[in-house]
């Protein structure tokens, strides 16, 4: 097993744990945002998770282009791993947003443009992950999902336009983190947690790519059970038994 596929925790993982604990500790210790109450401390989790989701999908987009240009499977591994992390963080962001919305407006869902867009984005990448599951051939899968990884992000641009446009026509209560008075300590805590979550992303990505490589290797091993080529998988039939003896 090569070094890249070994499972032990690396410095990045410890750094991620320490960074998140430090950032959240700092966020909890930071002054209360008077206008919003303690629920506003959700900010320190919500903003980083949504930032990570965008970062992860942007990485998928870039890795997809890189795959189509270079034809190197490792870019496909990066794209797939990053999309998976992105879907997890998008889900966390949506659930977090719902909890926050319940605390602030007493409703789980508002037809806020940002929230609607995040939900649409989730479905785009759930589709992307579903596609990766149904294609067995690694190269076909890499090419098709790279195309989808590119189209998905490009098409999010008109989706973004249309939804924000639609919402500006029917304005209701919209949550904007900008509305919160960002003075020094709060802004510092926010930036700190964004940085900490980014380290978490890097650590997860590293592990997920490692798993992707292992999966690839395992499939290759299973596909060639006997000799160096698959043709050796077929051997002479056992005629005596096949003949149906009592």
């Amino acid at each position: 097993m090569s070094d890249a596929t070994r499972s032990r925790l690396g410095p990045l993982d410890y750094a991620a744990v320490v960074a998140v604990l430090a950032a959240l500790g700092y966020a909890l210790a930071s002054p209360r945002i008077e206008s919003q109450g303690d629920a506003a401390r959700m900010l320190f989790v919500h903003v980083p998770t949504i930032w990570l989701a965008y970062l992860a999908f942007a990485v998928t987009f870039i890795a997809s282009i890189a795959y189509l240009v270079t034809n190197k499977l490792r870019w496909d591994h990066v794209a797939g791993a990053s999309a998976e992390i992105g879907v997890v963080f998008t889900t966390v962001a949506i659930i977090g947003g719902m909890v926050w919305g319940k605390a602030t407006w007493n409703v789980y869902w508002t037809w806020d443009a940002r929230l609607t867009l995040t939900a649409i984005m989730l479905f785009v990448y759930v589709g992307y992950l579903a596609l990766r599951r149904v294609i067995a051939d690694p190269e076909v899968r890499a090419r098709r999902s790279a195309v989808l990884g590119i189209i998905g992000l490009l098409q999010l641009i008109p989706v973004h336009f249309s939804v924000t446009w639609w919402r500006t026509l029917h304005q209701t209560n919209t949550f904007r983190p900008r509305d919160i008075q960002m003075d020094g300590p709060i802004l510092a805590a926010l930036l700190g947690s964004v940085a900490a979550f980014t380290v978490v992303y890097a650590a997860l990505l590293r592990h997920r790519i490692r798993l992707e490589k292992l999966e690839h290797a395992a499939r290759a091993a299973a596909a060639a059970p006997v000799g160096p080529v698959a043709g050796d998988a077929v051997t002479a039939p056992n005629v005596n038994r096949a003949g149906g003896q009592p």
Binding site: A136, A223, A230
Partner: peptide, 26 residues
């Protein structure tokens, strides 16, 4: 997919030639 089916194939076919390729299943 991940399975190697062919390795190290050398084959030349010239104009006017008809080559029969034999082999077992798989």
């Amino acid at each position: 997919g991940a399975a190697t089916i062919l390795r190290d194939i050398d084959l030349k076919v010239s104009a006017g030639e008809s080559v029969g390729l034999f082999g077992a299943n798989g």
